[in-house]
Design a protein around this nucleic acid. Structure first.
Lengths: 339, 339
DNA sequence: AGTTGGCACTCAGGGACGACAAGTGCCCGC
DNA sequence: GCGGGCACTTGTCGTCCCTGAGTGCCAACT
């Protein structure tokens, strides 16, 4: 009994099941794939694969479907990610290039990914702590109220309103603005706090408390604990899956609406060129135990600034989805550089 | 045959059907509501209501369900929108008050609305053309590339990158910035274009083309044709509806993902204190012909700056949803003022 | 040893059928 | 105009049976 053929059988089962969404039997297998053996032989292989836990039968006398473990083996066998066709690549490029600002880039990316994969797509905004400062602006709203605006190198903008104990004149504000920018422009966000810690000391005591408030607010902003943002698209694709999955669509949708959960999912990926796949229960988010997730990070110049993902039923087309995820991640990284 | 009682019967049918999601029969009606008549009498009323098109039977010998026309009459009878309970109001206030910036206010509002109504909620960002300018910032990225940032009175921030034909020094940029702000601060967005049209003339001919580009970009930004943004929440609620609705959930989800469609829906409301209801086919978006929409506008000081809505099956609790929509719209308007 | 044809067995899915119950429409007396 | 009564309609539910796909296993073949 050849080990190679067993793997071929598993692969065939996964492919057929993904295509038809129906349990696949030994007969159908030999018909559709030209394994040069009889159905009886395939049945023996299948029995072995079932013993090892790679496939299962929904009921006796039905065909086999892959288990999570089976998908895992299948995915691990996919050594190289298939490249997208040139028309596909061109479509991606055209689609993303018309974008004006970051919001639009992210929005288009997530829609594109959902469309390419016909699954639910998730894209995280460039993480603030992982990017650098382009400009800091202080806008006076009232004498005692200032809006702190941070523009990141990725094009992302964060704002925050600070109430001051003592009013601050436009002149002083301009000076603070000038000093802050001199200190932090081009710095990575994580280094900002150190760079501006000494600033208040430069100012006269009467102004100091206000400057401290501004500096503190800026530090909070760049720390950006709660500033991670994600967008999702393609939820409608969840409803297109046939038959039984509808029952499981609700927990998935619920999980997707919890941005905390999403960020956790995305955050678990270590930065990597290659897309990562998590299958069914491999996900430690319980609500997603019937779903698989293909994630990748993106970023300019090898530096990851964010992650993106595709979420779908475990019976998804892993090869195609991995290719799409990788392609969109690359283009998105390129856009970050370009900005 | 009393007209009043017929209306009472219709109301009872709507209420029961919304509560149970099952066709309601004459017997059940007299049991659950104390109409002081017999089931036979109710049957006569029902026959009349059916003749007039307010209710229908899914099949002979089943109970009645309201038609779109029936819901319409029912909603029109709801003279006053029920007020929310004080604990509910307090919950809303607490929930919205912790928000730091506009993104967070909008995000929390839409989640809150979805949670209150257990439907899909949609909130439009404050419309740019309908708000006024707080501050314009010009950030030099390269000598020939400037980022134009507009901060609106609602807290909304729009940005846009402009490439200049001729490089511009920091000094000139500062002067342009100063002049622009002097002209437009506090102005309504729609009036901005006129106010800055004459600006380039103030500058030396060598600088003029660059100033023109900046001014043009600013005009485009405030015109904000494509800058309307919406967020949605509670898509998972669509999957919770029982039985047959799942079949119609896909088109609804798809429509909701098309922000163009959503904006059209939201845009059709004329600004009004009272929530507006559109039922089933009253919607001219075909995909939403099985859905009802409760919309309202919001804004500070009586000036509408945006809209929000709840989308759900026609068999929704109109009274409760109208109350929630109105409440959230009010709080949101208040937040706009406060910012 | 590995492969193959053959065969008995299992079981989900799909009609057919009948009992049931909810609900209606209608007539007639009040 | 209201209400009791009754015949009629029809969807739902459970039962039964049949069919077909698919399996596991065994004996024979290479």
């Amino acid at each position: 009994m050849s080990e190679d053929r067993r793997l071929a059988v598993l692969r065939a089962i996964v492919e057929d099941y993904v295509a038809t969404h129906e349990p696949v039997g030994s007969r159908a297998l030999v018909d559709r794939h030209h394994l040069n053996v009889s159905s009886a032989t395939v049945r023996n292989d299948m029995a072995a694969l079932e013993d090892e836990g790679f496939i299962a039968q929904p009921h006796t006398s039905a065909g086999r479907i892959p288990t999570d473990k089976g998908y895992r083996l299948f995915v691990d066998q996919l050594t190289e990610v298939r490249a997208l066709s040139t028309p596909e690549r061109r479509a991606i490029q055209n689609f993303l290039e018309g974008a004006f600002d970051l919001d639009e880039v992210v929005d288009r990316s997530v829609r594109l990914l959902a469309q390419l994969t016909r699954q639910v797509a998730v894209v995280q905004y460039p993480s603030l702590p992982r990017s650098s400062v382009r400009h800091v602006e202080l806008v006076s709203l009232l004498p005692t109220r200032v809006m702190v605006v941070v523009i990141a190198s990725t094009g992302r903008i964060e704002q925050r309103v600070v109430d001051l104990e003592t009013p601050m004149s436009e002149d002083v504000l301009a000076k603070v603005r000038q000093r802050i920018n001199a200190c932090v422009q081009g710095l990575r966000m994580v280094d900002v706090a150190d760079a501006i810690a000494g600033l208040p000391a430069e100012f006269a005591p009467v102004e100091r408390s206000a400057v401290v408030a501004l500096v503190a607010s800026l530090m909070e902003t760049v720390a950006g604990q709660r500033e991670e943002r994600v967008v999702i698209s393609g939820a409608a694709n969840l409803t297109r899956v046939p038959s039984d999955f509808p029952l499981t669509v609700q927990p998935v949708l619920e999980a997707l609406e919890e941005h905390v959960v999403l960020l956790k999912l995305l955050g678990e990926v270590e930065a990597s060129e290659q897309p990562t796949v998590r299958i069914g229960a491999e996900n430690d988010v319980q609500q997603l135990s019937t779903a698989s997730i293909v994630t990748s990070s993106y970023g300019g110049e090898g530096q990851a600034v964010g992650n993106l993902a595709v979420v779908g039923p475990t019976r998804m087309d892993y090869a195609a989805n991995m290719a799409s995820v990788r392609a969109v991640a690359r283009y998105l990284g390129r856009m970050m550089d370009a900005q």
